[in-house]
Design a protein around this nucleic acid. Structure first.
Lengths: 201, 201
DNA sequence: AATATATTTGACTATTCAGTCAATTTCCAT
DNA sequence: ATGGAAATTGACTGAATAGTCAAATATATT
């Protein structure tokens, strides 16, 4: 019932893109509205505040991207290969963004989270959730890898957190240095973190 | 000659503190001036822009903290112990900040750098510089550790970057989760990253 | 065709923002 | 003591900010 509209979806998508490429603080509601071709009144019809939009935009982005991750981390695939595919996926995504925008953008969850963790509790919690969901994929791969004796870690949960730390940190450095090349070490670094036994050459 | 003043130093110190605890975008020139008890006119007498102040403030902070790092990474100390002390130093600093402000603040260079890397080139470069200086300490420790056969890495430079990645990533997670306890894994994680042979218990 | 419901419009606050400036004050060096 | 250099003052600008609102409009359902 009522009047149909794509404004909400458009706002979510534009907001995620702008905030990822720039920052929460430097993207205004007016910018988002202009880019989405939506009036400000409509913005506040759909979202109570800029902060609420950001939370919704990041959740929506996850919703859209989750199937890809499910595929990458499919239990059908050998566990170390899942991680390998994950690393490649991250590299591709960063490369694509960097080519489009002229700079390495890093992890969107980490960027938003670290900018606002001490300022906006709702955003902090959402960033935490999203990062936790990512870690869970890694953890399940590590659990399987351990069961198969492919890996020298004893605690998959702690191991997953370490893997995620090193990935986040490398993405952060790649962003700050604006050097995509750093990501060439992504996969070897991850494998080193978990003490992966040497595999096929 | 002329009129003496502590305003500049005060602005640098206040700016660093506020930006670290909050974010660049959420701290205004007016806030900084108010906290430093300095008029806006004086601010712009000393600094051409907010962005220039941030760069100067971070450089000044490094200048003040460098002696501590020199001490921690003194060649007089066994290389792995240097890293151990470094990890402890990071934990202490984070704990202190967290107690004072009620939330984990993470790495100041990483926070500023990731917020503005794609927005402000001068700030990006300064953040990169500061991170590079940190990595150099780690690299020298790893070089010595390798020479003494304490460590299973072959390339100290690449190893240092991996160490730094994992440290940054863990700090980032601690900030986003607002959980100081995550940092308990800091030292073990670092030692795992470099394949440190088991030492004294 | 009528109506209820949802969306759109765009002008409107009131505040905050970074940055400017000319006049004034302070105090070091001579 | 005084002249010159540097710091201070605080009011000012104009643009940008997040958020508001009442009236207009479109449409899916009945």
């Amino acid at each position: 019932m009522g009047r149909p509209s794509e404004a909400k979806e458009k706002l979510l998508q534009v907001a995620f893109d702008l905030i990822w490429n720039q920052s929460y603080g430097s993207v205004s509601v007016d910018h988002i509205c202009a880019r989405a071709r939506v009036n400000k009144g409509s913005f506040y019809h759909f979202f109570p505040s800029k902060s609420d939009l950001a939370v919704a935009a990041y959740e929506e982005h996850w919703r859209e991207k989750q199937p890809e991750l499910d595929k990458i981390f499919s239990p059908q695939i050998p566990p170390l290969e899942r991680l390998e595919r994950w690393c490649r996926h991250i590299c591709n995504r960063q490369k694509q963004k960097a080519e489009k925008y002229g700079h390495v953008c890093g992890c969107p969850y980490a960027s938003l989270g670290t900018e606002l963790a001490t300022q906006d509790e709702k955003i902090r919690v959402k960033a935490q959730e999203l990062m936790d969901r990512n870690i869970r994929y890694v953890e399940s791969a590590l659990t399987d890898a351990k069961r198969q004796g492919l890996v020298s870690i004893d605690n998959p949960q702690a191991g997953a957190r370490r893997v995620y730390s090193s990935v986040l940190g490398l993405l952060l450095q790649a962003k700050v240095r604006n050097e995509l090349e750093l990501l060439q070490d992504l996969e070897p670094m991850v494998m080193n973190t978990i003490g992966a036994r040497e595999l096929a050459a």
